[in-house]
Amino acid sequence: MPNDNKQKPILIVNQSAPYGNANAKESLDLALASSAFEQALSILFTGDGIYQLLPKQSPDDIQSKNLLQMLKALPIYGVEQLYVDQQSLTERGITELDTQLPIVLVNSVEISRLYHDAQTVFRF
């Protein structure tokens, strides 16, 4: 599309808990790699994905890398806001997320807009 200079964003949707499978790690790898191409990137955490944002994760004893620690690097990679589905928090009894992450709570209308604004959507 030669006339469309404005880069439409990629949306990455995280709907998986962090350590039970590889989805969260693969999603993060894609986010970090996209940044190398200076792609406009939005990241949404919904469903079980919000478990990725719980504070004080310490996965050494299950031989995993600390994904929370890696998420904290996203602002340096140009991702300034992490969108979090408010309703998913309530459903799971979660009252506290890590305070060092740039979290923006969103409702279903805002989530729908994220999907519609994105040119490409990846769900993990």
Binding site: L32, A36, N66, Q69, M70, A73, Y77
Partner: peptide, 15 residues
């Protein structure tokens, strides 16, 4: 130590 990430070139330059 802070992020558990080995940065690629673009981020290394930034750091």
């Amino acid at each position: 130590m802070e992020f558990s990430i080995s940065p690629a070139m673009r981020i290394l330059v930034k750091i």
